[in-house]
């Protein structure tokens, strides 16, 4: 029964997707809200706060796009998706974009027909283990019971890592992060593995975070970023350059504090002028207002500000910038030029 309902829904949703494949930008403008897929709750990346307002690093990307397109950071309908439902939700048109720490892989890009518009967090899969077990390297995990969130790339990385190192393990597949946390804390698994950022976020919610260590091995590359459906490049451009605007703003020293002043009139730096719309017509090319990027930075902040506010070292999650620093500071963030 459930299956047939799902199948029917898939068909109906497929019809809707077929009709709206072309002009997502127009649809979003006409609707007045952006439907953005986020995770079901990962503190720091996407989780509702005490008032039910969604906040987090991925949420900021949704809000940035909503600001650019609709001029209102709150014009977002957040759709919580699990690791399993996210791609169906996007492919069927239920959501306009997905910002849910999703790893950019070849098959997702090519075979599942999605377009990854960029990377907002460079991550890698790590292991968390109680200090009491006295393990200092992932190579010592022979025979361990490992909790994994099912339906993610972590399952495949884990199988590969243990096979290559010729050590055995017992996988315990878990549906959500909250359940995994409960199982891990009860000792039903020795190790919890997911993206290192997710581990840090999970550990931050523990009663005694100091009793758990994240092992030094990072066993995979996990470039996480927002994605859209294939076949609507205009919409893909809007999301891509909304993200790039935040990255470029940090590089150019534009912050939410000084953007008002800098956008009053054209300054000395032509790239800042083009970004903030005081020179050229970049906004018009995207089909947006001239001040689209200015509004993003004003309302959301630049990449560095969003990082510090949600997952930076001053927050309980306490992630260092590491690979996610600007290219000028030895990181991988590199926004193409605004010209």
């Amino acid at each position: 029964m459930n299956k047939s309902v799902f199948f029917g829904a898939l068909t109906v949703a497929g019809l809707a997707a077929g009709a709206s494949a072309a002009a997502t930008l127009d649809d979003v403008k006409a609707r007045g809200t952006l439907n953005c897929g986020v995770s079901t709750g990962l503190v720091g990346f996407a989780a509702p706060d005490a008032d039910g307002e969604w906040e987090g690093f991925d949420v900021a990307v949704c809000r940035a796009v909503a600001t650019a397109v609709l001029g209102d950071p709150n014009a977002v309908e957040f759709v919580p998706t699990t690791g399993k439902t996210r791609f169906t939700a996007l492919a069927s048109g239920e959501i306009d974009m997905l910002a849910r720490n999703t790893t950019w892989t070849f098959s997702r890009d090519v075979d599942l027909k999605f377009t990854f518009v960029g990377v907002n967090y460079y991550d890698g899969q790590g292991f968390m283990i109680p200090k009491a077990l006295g393990v200092s390297s992932a190579k010592e995990l022979d025979g361990a019971t490992v909790c994994i969130q099912t339906g993610t790339t972590t399952e495949l990385n884990l199988a590969d890592y243990f096979r290559v190192n010729n050590i055995s393990y017992e996988p315990v597949p878990i549906e959500t992060n909250a359940e995994a946390q409960q199982q891990y804390l009860a000792g039903a698994c020795d190790v919890y593995t997911t993206d290192a950022s997710g581990l840090a976020a999970t550990r931050a919610t523990f009663e005694a975070p100091g009793d758990h260590v994240i092992l030094p091995e990072i066993i995979s590359k996990e470039p996480l970023g927002p994605l859209v459906r294939h076949g609507d490049s205009e919409w893909g451009d809007v999301v891509r350059w909304s993200l790039n605007a935040m990255v470029a703003a940090e590089e150019l020293g534009v912050t939410s504090a000084n953007v008002g002043e800098m956008s009053m009139e054209a300054g000395d730096n032509p790239e800042i002028n083009r970004l903030l719309g005081t020179e050229g017509n970049l906004g018009e090319m995207l089909g947006l207002d001239a001040g689209w990027a200015k509004m993003i930075i004003e309302n959301i902040g630049n990449y560095g500000e969003v990082f510090e506010a949600n997952i930076g070292e001053s927050t309980p999650i306490g992630l260092a910038r590491g690979l996610n620093a600007q290219w000028t500071e030895g990181g991988l963030l590199y926004a193409p030029p605004f010209r």
Binding site: A17, A21, K113, E155, L156, E170, P173, H230, G231
Partner: peptide, 26 residues
């Protein structure tokens, strides 16, 4: 269903059944 799958550039194929799964089962 078939038409919309074709619009999305997808087809019905069971070739994946013969490929390595890549995951472990307890």
């Amino acid at each position: 269903l078939m038409r919309n799958l074709a619009l999305l550039g997808q087809d019905i194929s069971y070739e994946f059944l013969g490929e390595p799964s890549g995951y472990d089962i307890n």
